[in-house]
Design a protein around this nucleic acid. Structure first.
Length: 644
RNA sequence: GCCGGAGUAGCUCAGGGGUAGAGCAGCUCACUCGUAAUGAGCAGGCCAGGGGUUCGAAUCCCCUCUCCGGCUCCA
């Protein structure tokens, strides 16, 4: 019997049944065979040496590809587990997948791993790799598997939970064996351990079995593995680069903000430079909200517990809320974790007609959420933060247009701050618990999907992952070093209008419920600034720089001229500082550069005489001498224009 | 909250049972200088907080707090 395999370029090839992926790769080209890690037939990944019995779409998975790396990392995880079981008496192993940029494996043993343990494990891994042990796939019945792993309770649990449909023939599980080591595994794997060229164990951590804190805590070891030493080095450099950009470090170095211990975890104070940066971002937000037809409202930080009862937050959000405050007798108050109930009350403060809709209420609203002590992380995860929040109330007919408008808004905003690559996630109606009408859900989901398609934003549909009260989209950006961040969120809500009994009068003089759209464009102002600082590595675009230009006089006799130029720039609305006082020229310039000031103007004898400046811009290499003063001013002014 | 690591001057870090050190930053003085650190001097610490062991604790032990890396959750 022969089988037909279709190559990615459309070529149809014929092979004997039972041919291996490696043989096919070899028949295409020897270099391909060298780079091959696995193959796929109709999307099903298979080991290189596994016989193929059915035809279909055929592809070779090579080592530099993402799925090739996944396989490599998964094999690295196996080798690490093998090393750990060899070295640690009584250790048992749980689960060890490939993850973004690396892999981990969870173990249960009577003590945590130490940094020295990692070195020893690496040595044992090196030995296993040097032996070039082949990975051999073996299939067996569930019963045989249960017997094989009788000493490893986590494996038993996995075997019992394996879905019948996962392996074609129902009751069959697969394991991979290399020398003395055997692990339950779907595969595929590298042909042999010797193919692991570059890996590194990076850190240890505690992790709950199946991510459930009620279950045993295991000891996790993280590692990373790459197809070459060079790729590994590049990755380690990227990690260093990320550390260099850490907004907490830059926040201190650039004197933007701090987290004083006396305040408490997750609470930030903004220093003058950071305050300026934040104000610029917020001013931008207000401007664009106005452009898009939003109205501005304000609300307090507290409300009676009853409001949170009506809104439902005390039912499904209580664990993130701060405990009740006793203010007046018998009356409890709660600090707000969200702004929506306040905006709902504003809507409800008057009888609304269809002529009033849509009503778009916006607020830079500070909220407080109780985050567990282990999760706070600088500006990215704080306990007190400010949302550029809005709540739009519209008719169901207006919903598609409104969603389009919100998405346009979000994309303009993210683009204006220098983000170029977006993707988005659409969370649709959950299977079980949900409110509203199915047609409305569908309309909302469709409008969101269409809006994203029109905008050309890659979309992942998270089927059934929506909240019970409505579908939502999250917009993620990719930063300058390729990390993804979730920023904006647009959320449709069929529940709150119901809970608060919101209505409007239609043109037929009947009553209808409005639909509500929650939208946070930055997500949180703090978090957005944190991401922005990391994206730009602290070197903000000139329109956002707290100090846009530093004027440096060469000697004391040039101070007067320097101040004159500073005044002129300030008069044009630029943010300028002048370095008078002691210190050499080089030192002052160095300071301005390390403080990431985008423009440095040096003035000396020749400049005073000719009415010029020396201009050093962050965006250009080196400096320009003798630039006419007016030219420098107008250059700076045009460079400092905000995008909107 | 849980697991690991760590808290020494404003910052970055050394020291590790015998009464605290460096570099940078700060202050003073001198130098007045043309594009990434001039030199000298001065000042600065309840060694996170509390308890214990000891003749003696920054150092060893216990508890608490905070930070870092994860788990979980999310903006």
């Amino acid at each position: 019997m022969s089988i037909e395999l279709v190559l990615p370029d459309g070529t149809v090839t014929c092979h004997k049944e039972g041919v291996t992926g490696l043989a096919i790769a070899g028949s295409i080209g020897p270099r391909l065979a060298d780079a091959a890690i696995a193959v796929s037939v109709d999307e099903e990944l298979m080991d290189l040496n596994r016989p193929i019995y059915s035809g279909g779409q055929f592809a070779v998975i090579t080592q530099g590809s993402e799925s090739g790396r996944d396989i490599l990392r998964h094999s690295a995880a196996h080798v690490m587990a093998q090393a750990v079981l060899n070295l640690f008496e009584g250790a048992t192993f749980a689960i060890g997948p490939a993850i973004t940029d690396g892999f981990y494996y969870d173990f249960d043993l009577d003590r945590p791993f130490t940094p020295e343990d990692l070195e020893e494990i690496e040595r044992e891994m090196d030995r296993i790799i040097a032996e070039d042990q082949p990975f051999e796939r073996e299939e067996m019945s569930r019963e045989v598997g249960l017997e094989l792993f009788r000493d490893h309770p986590y494996k038993l649990e996995i075997i019992r939970s394996v879905d019948d449909t996962e392996v074609d023939s129902g009751d069959i599980i697969s394991v991979y064996r290399n020398h003395e080591f055997v692990d339950l595994c779907r595969g595929p794997h590298l042909p042999s351990t010797g193919r692991l060229k570059a890996y590194k164990l990076t850190r240890t951590a505690g992790a709950y079995w199946r991510g459930d804190e009620k279950r045993p805590q295991l000891q996790r070891i993280y590692g990373t593995a790459w197809e070459s030493r060079k790729a590994l080095r590049t990755h380690l450099h990227r990690i260093e680069e990320a550390a260099r950009r850490d907004h907490r470090k830059l926040g201190r170095e650039l004197d933007l903000f701090s987290f004083p211990e006396d305040l408490g975890p997750g609470l930030v104070v903004w220093h003058p430079k950071g305050g300026m940066l934040r104000r610029l971002v917020e001013d931008y937000s207000r401007r664009v909200h106005q452009d898009f037809g939003f109205d501005f409202v304000f609300s307090p930080h507290l409300a009676k517990a009853g409001l949170w009862q009506t809104s439902g937050h005390l039912d499904f959000y209580a664990e993130n809320m701060y405990p009740a405050l006793d203010m007046d007798q018998d009356e409890e108050y709660r600090v707000k974790p969200m702004n929506c109930p306040f905006h709902v009350l504003i809507y409800r403060s008057d009888a609304r007609s269809y002529r009033d809709l849509p009503i778009r209420l916006s607020e830079l609203g500070s909220v407080y959420r109780y985050e567990r002590s282990g999760v706070v992380h600088g500006l990215l995860r704080a306990r007190g933060f400010t949302q550029d929040d809005s709540h739009t109330f519209c008719t169901r007919q207006q919903l598609p247009n409104e969603l389009q408008l919100h998405l346009d808004f979000v994309l303009q905003l993210l683009r204006d701050f220098g983000f170029k690559d977006f993707r988005s996630e659409l969370a649709t109606r959950p299977e079980e618990k949900w409110v509203g009408e199915p047609e409305l859900w569908e309309l909302a989901e469709q409008s969101l999907a269409e809006a994203l398609e029109t905008a050309g934003i890659p979309l992942r549909i998270a089927a059934g992952e929506g909240a019970f009260y409505g579908p939502k989209i999250d917009v993620h950006v990719e930063d300058a070093i390729g990390r993804g961040w979730q920023m904006s969120t647009i959320q449709v809500d069929f529940s709150l209008p119901e809970r608060f009994g919101l209505e409007y009068v239609t043109s037929e003089d009947t009553r209808e419920r409005p639909v509500m759209i929650h939208a946070a464009k930055f997500g949180s102002v703090e978090r957005f600034l944190g991401v922005l600082i990391e994206h730009y590595a602290g070197a903000m675009p000139i329109w956002l720089s707290p100090v846009q230009a530093t004027i440096v006089p060469v000697a004391d006799r040039h101070v007067e001229y320097a101040l004159e130029i500073a005044d002129q720039l300030r008069g044009e609305g630029l943010r300028v500082e002048t370095t008078v006082g002691p210190g050499k020229l080089g030192e002052k310039i160095r300071r301005a550069i390390t403080q990431k000031v985008p423009a440095i103007l040096v003035v000396g004898d020749q400049d005073v005489e000719n009415g010029t400046v020396g201009l050093r811009l962050r965006s250009q290499k080196g400096e320009r001498r003798g630039v006419p003063r007016e030219e420098a001013v107008s250059d700076l002014l045009s460079a400092a224009q905000p995008p909107h």
